[in-house]
Design a protein around this nucleic acid. Sequence first.
DNA 1: AAGTCGGGGAC
DNA 2: GTCCCAGACTT
Length: 380
Amino acid sequence: MASGAATGVDSGSDSGLEAPLPDDFAGRLVRWQRLHGRHGLPWQGTRDPYRVWLSEIMLQQTQVATVLDYYPRFLARFPDVAALAQAPLDDVLALWAGLGYYSRARNLHGCARRVMADWGGVFPARAADLVTLPGIGVSTAAAIAAFCHGERISILDGNVQRVLARHRGLDEDFSRAAPRRELQRLADALVPHASEMPVYTQALMDLGATRCTPRQAACDVCPVRRDCIALAQGRVHELPRKARATVQKVWAHALLLHAHCDCAGLWHVALVQRPATGVWSGLWTPPLLDEAQQAQRRAHAPPIRAHEAFLHVLTHRRWFLTPWLCATRGGDLPDAVALGLDGDQAAAMRWWTLDQAAGLALPAPVRARWLGWMEELTAA
DNA sequence: AAGTCGGGGAC
DNA sequence: GTCCCAGACTT
């Protein structure tokens, strides 16, 4: 389809996929990128696959401004793939805590070990091989291959979908497989010579992130406005079509903050490590008590100081968390049963000193309130 | 194809 | 409040 359209024969359809390929699309983007693209980000100016890979994983569904806080710290602690592979997973999670999507950290660590074990410590160059590694999907594989090795392969992340959907005037739901394949074919037909792949790939991303934005697109300074179908039709703000919203479920748990002061006057706090799957996987949290477990805990002394619940919103959940504060003193550290825990959480519970706890991988809403809770628990 | 997985930036 | 971000993985 694309080759026939490139001859300049317009089928008469208003579909951007069947229209002629835009002339010099990549060239215009490349020239724009050199002048107006984003430069100087910490993961730019290198073709080191480790650094590019790390940035791509961190940037999955995560904005640049957020990653800027994490990337340098992570790189300083794990300067190369060997250092990352050698580290315990808990050390990786501790540096990832707060970034979200914690399976990324688990897969990152697994990927580093696979690169060491199966690839001699060198990331494979081709996207087809990269995509076999944990945590690297088609989008990330294409980005690494294009940035580091100039592979002629198209990326199709959220930014690029928006740019192409608008420029070709494609009013389809790209969360569906068939329209997505069509868009992929278009993107494939637009890739330039290998020598321009790194800057072209960056250009598409930068245009989507800084000009062709979801709202209030800056079409007046767009390098491809000349033949943008959405702009000509006055439909920029309508594209791409939105997929239907997901339904949020409601959760409610008590968050049991139990601190114990031992005979030496040293404070400890009980935390449980979350399982490898599910929300906050691998992170350490105060025990989470559902309704039955709350009843179980209420049957025990000592008493609880309950705070007002706070709301924590995740993509699919509205989560009401009620902090329960409890301080005890003297003797041995209470066991999990004494705290009212059962089964899995009892097995996953550990006592930590406050200094130790501060260095663990804590979820963002726990980290944000941690010092206040500890201060209240250890006061008087 | 649909559901699961965080947190925050920008509006 | 809203939308969505350099998506991957499981079912």
